[in-house]
Amino acid sequence: MLLSAAAGTALLAGCSTPPQPDDAAIPVAVTAAPVMAATAPSKDNQILMAARQFVFRARNEACLLTGTAFAVDGTIITNRHVAAGADQMDLATWDGDDFEASATLHSDSDDLARMDALAPDDTEASLATSDPTSGTKVWVAGYPEGDQLTVTGGRVLGSIPGAQFGLAGQILEISDHIEHGNSGSPLLESDGDVVGVVFAVDLASGDGLAMPASTLQSFLNESGDNLSLPCAM
């Protein structure tokens, strides 16, 4: 009786747990469907899709050569040896949208050139605030052999003085596969930021060579109109 009264009091107070139903136990098996069944794109593919927005094919008609250029910090960057000898460069997006760029500055100390262009897309790369360290995973996005936009992955192998190549500052050695036409390609890290600019291949080791982000940042801060350079052929 007391137990019953206690139960009744608890019920009146609204403090008891609802009784377990004995005739409404319907087994429920709710299985959530996967939101995305499609396989996630690989990192290479993600980098490729990002690079399509700001990496261009560069053609130097005057010197009959092609290379790569990319948009960063409101300008177009490529190698000096790609842009040398031409006042105008023909640029093209990955899907064949052509536009012209005017050379504005060739670096004296580094293999870098700056151009002004009215790109079809305002999208541009962001420049990393620090240089990559050894072992960092990096991707090269460019147009090897003047072919389609390609992304190749690799790692930073180390840093060497650029003096042996006639360049100022340090040079990054990378394991990414580099070919002709990759000149001027941005070196991207996993989040898509530019950490360097590819300019050559070490024929002895086969390693790629790139100027680090700090060198590019210094060049972006330069001013001038040093354009009197012959073709690099």
Partner: peptide, 17 residues
């Protein structure tokens, strides 16, 4: 599209040459 664009650019390269 990339392949076609590449063919186009190659054609332009040839024309330029």
């Amino acid at each position: 599209l990339s392949s076609v664009a590449n063919q186009k650019e190659k054609a332009i390269d040839q024309e330029t040459v």
